[in-house]
Amino acid sequence: MYLPKLEQFYKHKEMDEGVLGIFETPEAIMEAAEKTKEKGYVGFDCLLPFPVHGIDEAMGTPRSGLPWVTFFAGLFGCLIGILFQGLTHSYDWPLNIAGKALNAWYAYVPIIFELTVFSAGIYTVVALLFLAGLPSPSRRILHKDLTSHRFGLWIPKSAKGYVESDVVSFVKGLGGTEVTVVQPEKQK
């Protein structure tokens, strides 16, 4: 049976201290991600201007668990729709309309459906914003081309076996141009 796993709800990690290498093509970043995974720098990330097809497999990221949020939020919205309409019309404010049954539930279907979709969609987006660490307008921009046409490989200081000079030469060896060591910003 397919059940949700905790690692599917991975969270975006802030990039304060580590090594950033810049790559020029999607193929290059794919290959770099693959090799970094083999090397075992757990917690590394790629910075991409667009979702590169297959990067999740290359990085070893599991499939996102967000559809589970959608499912349960949808169920919640559906129940709210059934209970709210049923309870108001049958108990809190019973109103005889043309002698029809008080709990004529067929007429509730449109609103039950709309509330299901509303709840499923909005909660999923809220969960997305939480996991992607948004909004966070004070976040640091590491390189201005990374949202346009170049690709970044990020190896954080917290990665296992992190030795700065080793990581720099490793990223250079992968073909990364402009390899920089990022230091934490001073607290203002």
């Binding site: 991975y10 969270k11 975006h12 990690k13 990039m15 991600a33 990330d45 790629c46 910075l47 991409l48 201007p49 979702p51 590169v52 990067i55 999740d56 990085m59 990221t61 499939r63 996102s64 967000l66 559809p67 959608t70 499923a120 969609g121 999923t124 987006v125 997305l128 914003l129 996991l131 992607a132 660490g133 948004l134 909004p135 966070s136 307008p137 004070s138 976040r139 921009i141 590491l142 990374l146 949202t147 970044g152 990020w154």
Partner: peptide
Amino acid sequence: SFGWVGSARAWSHLEIVSMVL
């Protein structure tokens, strides 16, 4: 832009949410 930086992990969540929506 909410401080988006293009992290691959954020992208893969975003891709799934686009599909769900």
